[in-house]
Design a binder for these strands. Structure first.
Length: 440
RNA sequence: GGAGGGAUGUCCGAAUGGUAAGGAGCCGGUCUCGAAAACCGGUACGGCCUCACGGCCUUCGGGGUUCGAAUCCCCGUCCCUCCGCCA
């Protein structure tokens, strides 16, 4: 089958297999059991029926095509020998074969389209090390530092920021709308400094290749990342151009090597990107609407790995460590959580979150989400590598993690380092770069 | 935004309606103490269906004409040249 071009195109194209259809076919019960850990409503029966129908139709189409190929050569031969009557008889027969083939191909295309829709909608299979459970039942793996002990009521980062002239949410609302941030004065300097410092650290100390990608991306890119077709509601869209605003650089970085065959010697490939991220955040509410916790636009430094199946879970631990370095050097209290099966994003097989403490809220908020997507995205994007020992190309494993998202980080820096008189004592790594120790 | 040109394998590159030349590279072999050179053979990446034998697809993507399309027609993507616009 062909395998090129945007997967939304119709016709006899190679289906996107987020899960290997052959695996599903050979062990449907095993796959179903594992998928239901994440979503008990998943049903594979329609998919399996379509798969069988497809293979039957495919056999018929191929047989007709074979007869046509043979016949066509014969036509040429008869014509060369001047056997006109025989040639005309054969032509009549082949016209019939061609018509039958066309009909069978149309039915096949319909079946394949339905099969694609089923496959695209399926989420990744949770890894065995992922606990069964709901969102609330995540497992805390470890924590770093202690919540700062204040002998005064902790102020909200928004109150601190507005008093210190670091943020101007009112004017931001005038310019764009509610829940878009505007960093001002020392606040803008702090934000720039954080982004640059994180990018430099990952590039120079952890060996990542820096990328400054486009902020708009096309539909295919989001189909590959797993955002589409199911989660398009979160995306800002430019309908005239069929482009979408970047919600996370993961979506862009996974498409860097779409439709490529990499060399095993080049793996792992590690990229660090800075992008603004845009999210419509349709369903959020309450306390989260104030300040920087949940906004339509935020800055993020993203880490991304292309690696082999053999080492991808070791890479995940390393990735988490790289993200943690940022929080440790800032001296922020945080904890590390292992998400349960029901809390995983569509594309993820295993996710570890870093959650930073926000004293005014009295709770932890996610500042990094590190996932191993195994070959889910690689299948959708047709991203493979040639094994060093030769043989057929295999799908890579892809990993992504924030390192880190700054708006919540910004909030945590203010809230955890606030003083009784409403000032903020900067962590040394930032004080050094900003040229001042206190925001006042 | 307008006009024109282009896309063939790992690379270069031919084929203008009859089922993808040729060369380089790569792999294997002969020769050699060994290597190079030379010579001989293989080589369309890759994929789908099949227990297998084998069949089928793959000339940027999609559609059309035809018994038959790299080749003809339509739509799209990307690249190049020029014009316009612009930080």
């Amino acid at each position: 089958m062909k395998r090129h071009g945007p997967p939304e195109a119709s016709g006899l194209y190679w289906r996107l297999t987020m899960l290997d259809i052959r695996t599903i076919r050979s062990d449907p019960d095993g796959v179903l059991t594992r998928l239901r850990r994440r979503d008990p409503t998943i049903d594979l029966a329609p998919l399996l029926a379509l798969d069988e129908e497809r293979r039957e139709l495919l056999k018929r189409v191929e047989e007709l095509r074979r007869r046509q190929n043979e016949g066509s050569e014969e036509v040429a031969a008869l014509a060369r020998e001047g056997r006109v009557a025989e040639r005309d008889a054969l032509l009549a027969e082949l016209r019939e074969v061609a018509a039958q083939r066309k009909g069978a191909e149309e039915r096949l295309a319909q079946v394949e389209q339905k099969l694609d829709a089923e496959l695209l909608a399926l989420p990744n299979i949770p890894h065995d090390s992922v606990p069964t459970g709901t969102k609330e039942e995540k497992v805390i793996l470890r924590s770093f530092g202690e919540p700062p002990a204040f002998d005064f009521p902790a102020k909200h980062h928004l109150a601190l920021a507005e008093a210190l002239g670091l943020l101007d949410m009112e004017r931001a609302a005038k310019v764009a709308g509610a829940r878009f941030p505007m960093y001002t004065g020392e606040g803008a300097r702090l934000e720039f400094t954080l982004i640059h410092w994180m990018l430099e650290l990952h590039a120079r100390e952890h060996g990542y290749r820096p990328i400054l990608p486009p902020i708009l991306a096309n539909r295919t890119s989001f189909l590959v990342s797993g955002q589409l077709p199911k989660f398009g509601d979160e995306l800002y869209r430019c309908p005239e151009d069929d482009l979408y605003l970047n919600p996370t650089a993961e979506s862009l970085l996974v498409n860097l090597h779409r439709d490529e065959i990499l060399s095993e010697e080049d793996l792992p490939l590690r990229y660090v990107a800075y992008t603004p991220c845009f999210r419509r955040e349709a369903g959020s509410y309450g306390e989260e609407q104030r300040g920087l916790i949940r906004v339509h636009q935020f800055n993020k430094v993203e880490l991304f790995h292309y690696t082999t199946p053999e080492r991808s879970y070791d890479d995940l631990d390393e990735l988490v460590g790289h993200a943690e370095t940022i929080l440790k050097r800032l001296g922020l209290h945080y904890r590390v959580a292992l998400l349960t099966a029901q809390d995983l994003a569509q594309q993820s097989a295993k996710t570890i979150d870093l959650e930073v403490w926000l004293p005014a809220q009295g709770r932890y908020y996610e500042v990094s989400s590190c996932s191993n997507c195994e070959d889910y995205q690689a299948r959708r994007g047709n991203i493979r590598y040639r094994p060093a020992q030769g043989g057929r190309p295999r799908f890579v494993h892809t990993l992504n993690g924030s390192g880190l998202a700054t708006s919540r980080l910004f909030a945590a820096i203010l809230e955890q380092n606030q003083t009784a008189d409403g000032k903020v004592t900067l962590p040394p790594v930032l004080a050094e770069r900003l040229g001042e120790h206190t925001l006042e």
